[in-house]
Design a protein around this nucleic acid. Structure first.
Lengths: 137, 137
DNA sequence: CTAAATCCTAGTTAATCTATAGAATTTACA
DNA sequence: TGTAAATTCTATAGATTAACTAGGATTTAG
């Protein structure tokens, strides 16, 4: 399941993608438009900024805008930024790998192989969902 | 990500699937064999029993055994039993559907369609991973 | 009757998620 | 240069959930 943060991030990006080129959106504008608690959205936009998906203009008449093409922002990236690993266990993860503590003797746990198959399929599917693909609906 | 409960459930089922036909496994045996906290495993086995994956014999010399073919127990089923929906949002779920609270005007939220695609792909992949497929490794 | 197992309910602890509060900083412009 | 309006930063509250743990009730074999 996606966290609210990830869901809100997607909706915020969607909102930004629907604006005119060169338009700068204030937080309150996005919050109202996408129905997201404003103060919570502030944090999310800062995370998106640190992740180089958006940039901001500070001060009066400031706000946020996309700096990455909506064709290049994938569900997979947003999931990883806010909710971490796409794999079902850390030992099957590409970007968040950790060995499992409860697999004693064997070097690979019994679940790892199957979960890596799932990871590959899910990842591929998630990389196919972009902000652009969600907008044109 | 899988919860520990779901992970332990898979490992317990795997353990049971590896035993001889007609063998009955005590909780402590499974706990030691699969490295799972015993008291926690008790609850998990009861859940698996309620889910009709295993059955039990009570009293002295009692224990647990599979009642469903290892070819018919899929990752998707275990995920649903312990971790709920496979979809990334309730509004995109087949078995755990709930409308999203924060999608006001439109009847369908902007994310729903894309997330249903992911759900279909993930579900199909998860239905392909069975206890049997994990054993033979 | 007793030992050994499952079954059941409750509670505990720690972490995490979802938000909110409030002040510091930056900027446009009158 | 002052002020309004925005982002940015840090802390924290409250609720929920996850991961166990405890202890006793029940069942069964011998």
């Amino acid at each position: 399941m996606l966290s609210h943060k990830a869901k809100y991030a997607l909706k915020a990006l969607l909102y930004l993608a629907e604006q005119d080129e060169n338009h700068i959106s204030k937080t309150i504008e996005i919050a109202d438009g996408a129905n997201i608690p404003k103060k919570f959205l502030e944090q999310i936009l800062l995370d998106l900024k640190r992740g180089r998906f958006v940039s901001s203009k500070q001060g009066k008449f400031g706000g946020y805008y996309l700096i990455k093409s909506k064709n290049d922002i994938t569900l997979a990236e947003i999931h990883r930024l806010f909710d971490g690993a796409i794999a079902l266990l850390p030992c099957a993860s590409l970007n968040f790998y950790e060995p499992c503590a409860d697999c004693k003797t064997e070097s690979e746990c019994s679940l790892r192989h199957g979960l890596m198959i799932i990871r590959d399929e899910t990842l591929r599917a998630m990389q196919g969902i972009t902000i652009a693909s969600l907008v044109k609906k």
